[in-house]
């Protein structure tokens, strides 16, 4: 069984998506492999970074491997250390390709790459004024989530664990609060290392997840992309199904009457 594609759309800033797996394009061994993994993932949104042209290999563009007709391309502001740099990168992305949706990332700390909440909020404010649709990468802070939503962001993208760490959903309790409060989509971003982590995020009620490293550095990124797609779908189905909740004691699955050699119930 699969979810009928049109029954359960993800809507971001008025645009409809049928895949709840967003994908990052970094760290693949080749651009061709990246494109194959995106196809295998069924993703409808792929994020990419902006960097100085390398004058030593000026024709090394990966854009010819990305198919903007199959999935929305979402430039990010990775590398920005403050709001000024983030706004500059967003403007360059818009100039380079007409992109008005931006994944806002402001990560001044090189060790853990945690997002700077103050600069992220400031950048979001400025970018929204400039007409951008802003999808902010953020720490799993419910108060910050409210502030970003009030500012007019299109999604909230709280981190599961540090970027590229593959450590899974370490901020689950905080993300649960964000999900409970938000009226815009919550996309769990960063740190998801296995399809089970994606499933776990979706079971909690996340609207989508974004995965890059776990797929890109797998021995077989195409197979891992399929795995994540299945994990996302499994988790989403469980969320929609409504889980029966936990119990400290056993809850018998089989009837507690009619045991052999006994006329009585044992309960």
């Amino acid at each position: 069984m699969t979810i009928k594609r049109n029954d359960d759309p993800l809507i971001i800033a008025g645009e409809t998506f049928h895949s709840r797996l967003l994908i990052g394009t970094g760290k693949f061994k080749s651009a061709k492999l990246m494109a194959e993994a995106i196809d295998a993932s069924g993703s409808q949104m792929a994020t990419m970074a902006l960097r100085r042209v390398d004058l030593g290999s000026p024709d090394d563009s990966m854009m010819k491997h990305l198919d903007g007709s199959k999935y929305r391309l979402l430039p990010n502001t990775s590398g920005a250390r403050d709001a000024v740099e983030a706004v500059r990168l967003a403007k360059m992305a818009r100039s380079a390709g007409g992109f008005t949706w931006i994944k806002l990332e402001v990560t001044p700390d090189p060790n853990y790459m945690l997002p700077d909440p103050v600069e992220t909020l400031e950048a979001a404010r400025q970018l929204i004024k400039l007409g951008f649709t802003v999808l902010p990468y953020m720490n799993a802070d419910p108060i910050l989530a409210r502030r970003l939503e009030d500012e007019g962001c299109a999604t909230l993208m709280p981190l599961a664990s540090p970027i590229g760490s593959n450590r899974g959903l370490r901020t689950g309790d905080q993300i649960a609060i964000i999900i409970e409060q938000a009226s815009i989509p919550v996309v769990v971003d960063a740190g998801l290392g296995m399809p089970s982590h994606a499933a776990q995020s979706m079971e909690m009620g996340a609207d989508a997840v974004l995965v890059n490293t776990a797929i890109a550095i797998a021995d077989d990124p195409v197979q891992m992309a399929r795995g994540f797609a299945a994990g996302v779908e499994a988790g989403r189905m469980a969320y929609l199904a409504g889980a029966g909740g936990e119990s400290r004691l056993a809850r018998a699955s089989s009837p507690l009457t009619g045991f052999l050699n006994s006329g009585e119930s044992r309960s």
């Binding site: 394009t25 970094g26 994020t47 970074a49 042209v53 990966m62 390709g97």
Partner: peptide, 10 residues
């Protein structure tokens, strides 16, 4: 001049 283009990233 600063000239930038898109690269892989997450």
């Amino acid at each position: 001049l600063e000239i930038a283009r898109f690269v892989g990233g997450g």
